[in-house]
């Protein structure tokens, strides 16, 4: 028996919005410790890694490990039926071929039950080693989304260069070029508005704007985003999901011919 309850269904809606650009279907691996999802996009260029800890749910029970393959388009249709203030409960029996979603309004005046068929998906998990990154940039997530949107007007790819002075985002194409530099903030009132750089060595890497823009669909989940970079390894873009967990995106760099 699996059962996971979130008072704020809005969080699950936002999680779904954050992954459905990159993935059409995915397997949710449920265990005693929580819900994990790891999947690559069709081109095997980016990877989504979602971790929702069991202790972050308002109620959580998972008697046996369970892998639930879901079509994310269909899951989106169901989650759209939940009111923003509704509580959501996901339930499945052991070895079930369906997952149930129950939405309850604030005073339980309205209770809606939906069932969705599960799928058997071929899963390919990549082993991602613990890495000490040369540069870790923490910045406001909305600022990162804005930069990705603005620079993708200039070219298909964008360079991210990090030094101890700051982080520079640049792009170039037919219409011209764009450069945005962010300095580390000296002092800020609100922690979520800060730009913080932890640098061991300067790094400059180039990435496809299309994927970065997809990652920024997670912006509503967190006020801050963390970019982890080292030479010649994939970028990690991480959004915390409150006390519940995190979503990480991995993106392979582009290499000059």
């Amino acid at each position: 028996m699996f059962e996971a309850r979130l008072v704020q269904s809005a969080i699950l809606k936002k999680v779904l919005e954050a992954i459905k650009d990159l993935l059409t279907e995915a397997t949710f691996d449920c265990s005693d410790s929580g819900i994990q999802l790891q999947a690559m996009d069709n081109a095997h260029v980016s990877l989504v890694s979602l971790n929702l800890r069991s202790d972050g749910f308002d109620k959580y029970r998972c008697d046996r490990n369970l892998s639930m393959g879901m079509n994310l388009g269909n899951m989106t249709k169901i989650m759209k039926c939940a009111g923003a203030e509704d509580t959501v409960t996901m339930k499945a029996q052991d070895n079930a071929d369906v997952v149930a979603f129950m939405f309850e309004s604030k005073n339980q005046e309205k209770v809606s039950d939906y069932e969705m068929k599960l799928m058997n998906l071929d899963q390919e998990h990549l082993g991602i080693p613990e890495t000490d990154y040369s540069c870790i940039v923490k910045m406001p997530s909305q600022e990162f989304a804005r930069i990705c949107r603005d620079l993708s007007q200039f070219g298909e790819s964008m360079a991210i260069s990090c030094t101890k002075e700051g982080v520079k985002f640049s792009s170039a194409g037919d219409i011209g070029s764009a450069n945005i530099k962010l300095a580390q903030t000296a002092n800020v009132d609100a922690e979520e508005e800060a730009v913080v750089i932890e640098m061991q060595e300067p790094v400059s890497l180039t990435f496809a704007c299309r994927y970065l823009n997809s990652f920024t669909k997670a912006t509503p989940l967190s006020a801050q985003v963390q970019l982890s970079m080292s030479a010649d390894v994939p970028l990690v873009v991480e959004y915390k999901i409150g006390e519940l967990g995190h979503i990480r995106y991995y993106l392979a760099p582009k290499i000059e011919d």
Partner: peptide, 14 residues
Amino acid sequence: TADQIELYAYYLPD
């Protein structure tokens, strides 16, 4: 121009 690399170049299937 820059070549897009796949993740398999960095991480192997478990």
